[in-house]
Design a protein around this nucleic acid. Structure first.
Ligand code: MN
Ligand code: MN
Length: 654
DNA sequence: GAGTGCT
DNA sequence: AGCACTCAACGCGTA
DNA sequence: TACGCG
């Protein structure tokens, strides 16, 4: 009680000596019950801290039962009578409240609980006595999402960010015959701190012996431990085989003995059962998932399945549909293969997609089928897909533009057959260089033009060879071939040199189709129009020094035999195939970053959905620090304040 | 591919 | 449950 | 304003 001096003071005003049962709760800034806020108070020991917290974090003591009044033991009375006594006893105040009876219809109470975003309800037999010190049969806890305690029996190997800890924890519980039963593995719900703590706690418990009677199948490489740790796990339901569906790790339960971990009677909640969620405050994308367990869940020949990712469920269909047909030496790529690719590259691509509006190019029937572009989504979206509302001049109204900020979203893009992922050169967030720019994207074109969305992170140089192999159908774009790519590389190196003369750091990747993308990261103090003009000036200079090999011509016919320098890609509505985006060409190649030194002996078709994950595991993300290498173009305006005067920049470029 | 309305 | 049907971008340059 | 363009 010393933790709550304010409450104690008020309770001392009561005449009788009382033994009450109840619970203290604290609230967050939105008025929701917050365990974290309560914890901030319960750890304190110094009197001054306690006093300060008593002011800063108000609490309410909810009283739900009375055991003694003076010398009188009330525990034998039926609950309804104890409640009557309580009601006459307690004076409700800011700090003390009564827990009222919610009526005798459990499902009404449960619905109210859901509407108020509370954890669950407790049903009590109105005729029951108070049973001290044990879990009473006449009290029934009904939670919205199920949590239970399980034994940690081992872990599976992790991938990517989880390499140094573990992928998933292997869970078990005691069965009726004194043995241990496998109930599933949990790969989400951990933050960096929990991962570290758990790995070091588990290390000393390692054993060669698998604690289960029959070794569970479908686990990636497992390390076993003596089943001595108890974890609380949230989950959606149990499958027919009594395996946990969509489990999320919560915390260790040091107060529970390992031998007490056995199945509990289940209260079935048919309609209202929900998916377990991570706590509201931890963003889905801050916690790396166990990629190995996701990949193994995908690794079968089923046509449809439901993947549980980050505590959400994603329905996958038509997994055996061929998206990229077999072509020459390239084996066919099915939707399953494609989603497998997305999962494997997710640690590398997600940082580049983060908070960039995306343009989808969807091919529900594979690369030979009909395609359509998509940038926004009006209907119901899975809850893990983030969007940003912005005005579109095209439709003269606001729309919800799609972002891909987490693994679940990336997998979902695979499900909806988005075969190319194009990103904006702008981001919807200001860090680290655009705190001064407005973040109002809605209402009018003016708002957009003044906002972050008009200030790109990069100047992009899009180089496309217009050298035809001769095998193209009439009107088709040039196909990939050695000569065209070689010339593009040559021009790219001229360009790199020119940009280096200006002390601009450059990043290069294959577009994945026939050409190259060169990015120059810039401080966001230059709007698109000027970025475009800057790019145009560079283009003119390049064109002047290599007129036989470079073209900036707008009409396709006049580009033949040269490399097209497309400065117009630096525009608000433009997007380019993202780094690591697959491309819709027969080879299933992928936009891949290269070291400049690799350029001479690289070829776009070498980097495919099949080969790029292995390359990434070897060389990592060559563009990982692109946003920490920003160039400040304002310095070119130092002598002449109008950067937009193209003669000035062209001269400087030269 | 997803959603809707019809059979 | 199965079928038919609809819907899914955008702005800049040039004529 | 219509169309070409990526
Ligand atoms: Mn282009
Ligand atoms: Mn291109």
């Amino acid at each position: 009680t010393h933790q709550y001096p304010g409450l104690v003071k008020e309770l001392k005003t009561y005449q009788d000596n009382l033994v009450l049962d109840g619970e203290i709760v604290a609230f967050d800034d939105k008025g929701r019950i917050s365990f974290q806020q309560l914890q901030a108070r319960s750890g304190l020991t110094r009197a001054t801290d306690i006093k300060a917290a008593d002011e800063k974090i108000p609490i309410i003591y909810y009283v739900f039962d009375v055991l003694y009044q003076g010398d009188r033991d009330l525990r034998g009375l039926p609950l309804r009578e104890r409640k009557m006594i309580l009601q006459n006893l307690i004076r409700s105040s800011d700090q003390i409240r009564l827990v009222y009876n919610l009526g005798d219809d459990g499902s009404v109470a449960f619905r109210a609980c859901i509407e108020n975003d509370l954890e669950g309800i407790v049903g009590k037999d109105a005729d029951s006595a108070y049973e001290s010190g044990r879990r009473s049969r006449s009290w029934l806890k009904v939670k919205r999402t199920r949590t239970d305690e399980f034994l940690i029996c081992g872990w599976t190997e992790g991938l990517g960010a989880r390499r140094s800890s573990f992928g998933a924890l292997i869970l078990g519980e005691h069965d009726a015959h004194g043995g241990l039963r496998f109930v599933g593995s949990v790969g989400t719900g951990f933050d960096a701190k929990k991962l570290k703590l758990l790995s070091s706690t588990l290390k000393p418990l390692v054993t060669d012996h698998c604690p289960f009677k029959s070794r569970p199948s479908g686990l990636s490489r497992a390390t076993w431990v003596r089943p001595e740790l108890v974890a609380e796990i949230k989950f959606a339901e149990r499958t027919k085989d009594e395996i946990l569906r969509a489990p999320v790790y919560l915390h260790l339960r040091k107060d529970i003995e390992p031998e007490d971990v056995k199945p509990k009677p289940i209260v079935h909640i048919e309609k209202n059962s929900e998916m377990p969620k991570k706590s509201k405050r931890s963003k889905m994308d801050t916690v790396p998932d166990d990629l190995a367990s996701i990949l193994s869940a995908l690794d079968n020949d089923r046509e449809s399945l439901t993947l549980d990712v980050s505590g959400a469920s994603i329905k996958l269909t038509n997994l055996n549909k061929v998206f990229w047909p077999e072509w020459q030496r390239h084996s066919p790529t099915t939707k399953r293969d494609y989603i497998n690719y997305l999962v494997r590259i997710s640690p590398f691509i997600l940082p580049h997609l983060r908070n960039r509006m995306i343009t989808l190019i969807r091919f529900p029937n594979g690369i030979e089928g009909q395609k359509f572009y998509q940038k926004h989504w009006d209907e119901h979206l899975p809850k893990f897909v983030e969007t940003v509302r912005a005005y579109t001049e095209h439709e003269k109204k606001d729309q919800n533009f799609l972002l891909c900020n987490n693994l679940a979203s990336l997998i979902w893009l695979g499900q909806i057959a988005d075969l190319e992922l194009h990103t904006s050169h702008t981001r919807t967030t200001a860090e680290p260089d655009a705190a001064h720019l407005p973040r109002t994207f809605t209402g009018s074109l003016k708002h957009i033009e003044n906002s972050l969305l008009n200030y790109p992170d990069f100047i992009v140089f899009d180089l496309d060879p217009y050298l035809y192999s001769g095998k193209e159908a009439k009107g088709d774009e040039p196909e990939l071939h050695q000569k065209g790519f070689a010339l593009t590389c040559k021009i790219a190196l001229y360009l790199k040199e020119m940009l280096e003369q200006l002390s601009l750091k450059t990043f290069v990747k294959t577009s994945g189709k026939t050409g190259l993308h060169i990015y120059v990261p810039i401080v966001r103090n230059i709007a698109y129009e000027q970025v475009r003009q800057f790019s145009q000036s560079i283009g003119h200079a390049l064109l002047e020094s290599h007129p036989e090999q470079v073209t900036m011509d707008w009409s396709v016919a006049k580009r033949t035999g040269k490399v097209f320098f497309d400065h117009n890609m630096n525009a608000r509505s433009k997007s380019l195939a993202s780094i690591y985006s697959p491309r819709v060409i027969a080879q299933a190649s992928v936009s891949t970053p290269l070291n400049w030194s690799e350029l001479s002996d690289s070829y776009p078709a070498d980097f495919t959905i099949q080969t790029v994950p292995a390359r990434l595991n070897k060389v990592g993300d060559l563009w990982s620090d692109i946003l920490s290498n920003k160039n400040d173009l304002q310095r070119f305006a130092a002598s002449d304040p109008s950067l937009s005067k193209k003669r000035t920049t062209a001269k400087k470029a030269r």
